[in-house]
Design a binder for these strands. Structure first.
Lengths: 169, 169
DNA sequence: AAATCAATATGACATTTGTCATAATGAATT
DNA sequence: AATTCATTATGACAAATGTCATATTGATTT
């Protein structure tokens, strides 16, 4: 395990063109390091296992030049390094898509669970069983889903949610 | 326009290997001619513009060796003639599919109209307006759709009908 | 520490749906 | 000619659904 602190010291000393940082490191996270060195000309690429939107968003806010997931194809890293050196900014497309999906998604986790059950054609009692909630709660959720989507009926809500890809996670 | 009667006379006289017949001809339809000559060794291919399932079904019942639509690709006719001479039987796949669809489709035209509106997420009042029916009638249709599909809810009915392709014509 | 939000629940009420009986008409089939 | 079937309708009743007010709990954010 590498220490964020030593990474920071190395970068400050060596002033590399590109620094590839993990996020979860002891002492200092990759994001903290990235923030510290933003005044340098060193480009930062975050390479991490964690697809947490929170991390991604702060990375973008700090202004890193790259953000990749460790499970993305290996040659993508080399491509990204080359692109970043040339001045480009590269964000993992999966992640961007995911953020866009959740960003505009007005539905909560539970509401999505319920909506998925609705899409299968289940009626309230069956939905309640499927998600282990009382029928009343399910009806409340549906009511909320309808008002959030602006739909007039369960089916319309499903149609709208599908169009916006709000129904997957 | 050719006469079915003269086609029949010609076939009886010439005893061809294959006879290609239209259906709608004056005096005698192609289907009548096909029926008359079934004792001969002449293979019959029906080539017609009319995609009426009624025609197709009687043709199959009579036992014709081929049934094609005039708007199918031209080389299909030559293929079919060759295949039929070799003893095969060739039915237009589109037509077969269509028949299978309507054959097992328990829904009436009107019910399909209603179900389509349901799939769009319309509620009863909106459906009634869309198909120019009273709300009561719409609810009766839905009730009937539910019992015919065995569904418990509108959405389930839509899902089932989509799976069986019962919602298009 | 306070405020916000998601998750969960209940009760009451209004509206929407689904079901059933019944009926008229016209087209198609036997 | 009689039967069947699709289309259309109404009325009455039961069940399901949607809405609203209200409340508790725990997590997250300010």
């Amino acid at each position: 395990m590498h220490y964020g602190e030593s990474a920071l010291q190395d970068i400050l000393r060596l002033k590399p063109d590109v620094a590839i940082l993990d996020i979860e490191m002891p002492k200092r996270t990759g994001l903290e390091v990235a923030e510290e060195i933003q005044s340098l000309n060193t480009k930062v690429i975050i390479l991490t296992t964690f697809a947490r939107q929170n991390y991604f968003e702060t990375a973008v806010r700090i202004g890193v030049q790259g953000y990749l997931l460790k499970d993305s194809p290996t040659d993508r890293l080399t491509e990204t390094i080359n692109a970043v050196v040339k001045g480009a900014t590269v964000y993992d497309p999966e992640l961007v898509r995911h953020v866009l999906r959740t960003e505009n998604n007005p539905l909560t986790e539970r509401e999505i669970d319920v909506l998925q059950a609705i899409a299968e054609g289940k009626r309230t009692s069956a939905i309640a069983e499927a998600v282990f909630l009382s029928q009343g709660t399910v009806r409340n959720y549906i009511s909320s889903i309808l008002s959030k989507t602006g739909a007039q009926s369960r089916i319309e809500a499903v149609n709208i949610a599908k169009k916006h890809q709000w129904m997957n996670r």
